[in-house]
Structure formats: C-alpha cells, structure tokens
C-alpha cells in the first residue's frame, strides 16, 4: 500500500471541495482498500464520506424509488419498499458478496466497484484498464470469467456488480452532485464500455459525488427477480445472471425489463429480448424464443465460450421463474 492522507468530510460541501482537489471518495471501502493493498489503486488522498446524509430510501412524488448512495447493501436489500416494489433489487443484493461485505458496502460504492479480472488486480500483468497502453493480458490469457459482450480489443473485463444488473434492467438513473450542482444520468450512460479507454469506467466529472440511484415509476403489477449462476452457492461472482421484471396485464406482457450480468463489460441490457416479449402471452416457447436473442453480438474468448449458451439458458430460466409457464 502506498502512503496516503485521510480526511473525513463533515458535510457535502467539504466533501465536494476535497473531491475537487483530487481526493478519492471512500465509504464502505470494501473494494478500494483491497485494491490499495495490491497497489492497483494508489490514491494520494482519501475522503471519507460516510457521515454525509445520503442514507435514505424514499418513494419520490412521481412514484420512483430513490436509494441514497450511502445506504448499505444489507439495508437496501432489507428495506420494505425495496422488497415490495423491486424484489429483483433485494435478490441481487442478497446474492452478492458475503453478509460482512453487505453490511459495509454502500449502493454508491457497489456500482463504482472495479472489475475482478485477475490481470487487472495483479500489478505485474499487462492491463489497459490499470495502465493504459500496457496491453490486455486477459485477451489471450485465462479468460473463463471474462465478458463476451461489450468488449473491445483493449479490454474484456466484466463489471462485477449484481445490483447494477437490476438497476440496468429497471432503467435507473444515477443522481450526481458536483461543484456546478446536481444532474442525473441514465444508468445505461453512467457505466462506460471499455472501447479504447478502458481506464474510464464511469461518466463522472472530476470531484462529482453519487448521491442516489433512482428507479423510475413503473407500471404495476410488476413481477421481478434475479437469477445468479455461479460455481459455488455463495460468496462468488456470477458466471451469468439475469434480472427480469415483467408487467403482465390481462394475460399479456405489457412491459419487459431484462438485463444480464457476468457477461458484459457493463451490466448488459437486453432490448431485443424485451421487444420479443412485449405484447405476447407468457409461454414456455416464448421464453425460449426471447432468450435466443440474449447473446446477440457475443464475442466469446478461448475459455468463456460456454457463456454464450449459458447466458441464453439463464435468461430463459429467469423469464420462466418470473413470468410463469402459463
């Protein structure tokens, strides 16, 4: 770990000021501290934002659900509003990490977490994300857990978050606060695909702070859920995952929100699957046909070829679990 200075922000304004001076925000620290120990991250200044008033879960006037950036994963998962309005969020959170980590890690930190690519986390390996221009060791290396969607010749690392997959599916917005005031960004625009600049991961301006993630009001009734496929049954990242929310009225799917995890460089929204579902009646064959589109555009690597088929089956299974087979 490289030496660093540490300050605790008493209020939002002082946090932003410290951020403007190049300070890195830290809350639960469950990703950043690990990476500092590996010297992957070498911040000079850490700004602890744990005391900022960003810990509320509220229903907005327009019927959206706003989750404060400092709400702990465990708190968000257990919150009655989250559980009843969006089971997919609760499930994604509860299938993440371990109980200890969920008690520390925050929602804002969760969507900021960095990839688990082992070459990224090994400072002696080539990694364009960590050291632009150094190359990508994963491309021709051991890439079983890597992405098949949204990849570039410079980076094939997955975004590891589960709840971000649910946020992507539900078309959440990320609320940001910077020196120039507030703004909000669509989730799909917040996390960036690697392209030729895999070191740029979020659409954040210097010193900007995430204040909340907001799920827009969605047509009700809405059934939703999250399926995570992984080698062991707990405390592991997804090989593939699927977040599905369906609004079914009079036996017809009126709205479908579907995204996949474990397969993309960012949480992977599946508009082709959604389009295939809307206006149709739930059936086993519908789930199969819709899921056929889940891996459109996939570019598998040497060790993750199985993910293409596994992704389709994961989406198919979760459509059935949420939508039923009637």
């Amino acid at each position: 770990m490289h030496p660093f200075s540490f300050t605790k922000a008493a209020d939002t304004r002082s946090a932003l000021a410290a951020g403007q001076r190049g300070g890195r925000y830290i809350a639960g620290g469950t990703t950043l501290v690990d990476l500092m120990r590996e010297t992957v991250e070498r911040p000079e200044t850490l700004v602890d934002i744990s005391d900022l008033p960003l810990r509320d879960v509220t229903v907005t006037e327009r019927g959206g659900l706003r989750i404060g950036a400092l709400v702990r994963m465990a708190e968000a998962a257990a919150h009655p509003k989250v559980r009843t309005l969006h089971p997919v969020i609760s499930q994604a959170l509860e299938l993440s990490a371990s109980a200890q980590l969920r008690n520390m890690a925050t929602i804002g930190g969760n969507i900021m977490q960095r990839t688990r690519c082992t070459y990224f986390r090994d400072v002696t390996a080539a990694c364009n994300k960590r050291e632009p221009g150094s190359g990508c060791a994963a491309l021709e290396g051991f890439n079983r857990t890597h992405a098949i969607l949204g990849t570039s010749d410079d980076c094939v690392a997955t975004h590891p978050s589960d709840v971000a997959v649910a946020f992507a599916a539900l078309e959440a917005r990320v609320h940001l606060l910077g020196p120039d005031g507030e703004r909000s960004v669509a989730f799909a625009d917040f996390l960036l695909r690697p392209g030729s600049t895999p070191n740029r991961e979020q659409a954040l301006r210097k010193g900007e702070l995430i204040t909340a993630v907001e799920i827009p009001a969605l047509a009700r009734p809405l059934k939703s859920g999250y399926l995570k496929v992984r080698d062991r049954q707990s405390y592991e990242f997804a090989l593939t995952s699927a977040a599905v929310a369906l609004h079914i009225r009079a036996g017809v799917i009126r709205e479908a929100k579907v995204a996949a995890g474990g397969v993309g460089t960012v949480p992977w929204k599946l508009p082709a699957v959604e389009r295939h579902l809307i206006g149709e009646r739930p059936s086993k064959s519908l789930w199969t046909q819709a899921a056929e589109r889940a891996a459109d555009g996939a570019r598998p690597l040497e060790h993750n070829r199985f993910k293409t088929e596994l992704l389709k089956r994961t989406v198919e299974r979760q459509l059935r679990i949420v939508g039923g087979t009637a």
Binding site: R116, G141, F142, R232, Y235
Partner: peptide, 25 residues
C-alpha cells in the same frame, strides 16, 4: 489452480478466484 502458460503466472492466487466450498455448498 490455474497457470497462465505464457509466463507461468498463477492467475487465481487468491480465495476469491481459487474456489473452496462455502457453507452453502
């Protein structure tokens, strides 16, 4: 234990990537 044969590096040299059973298993 996975070795990257290009340079002999062990690529899963931690307990997040070298999986052992957890209670749920």
């Amino acid at each position: 234990t996975v070795i990257d044969h290009r340079d002999g590096r062990i690529v899963n040299a931690d307990l997040a990537n070298y999986l052992v059973p957890v209670n749920a298993d």
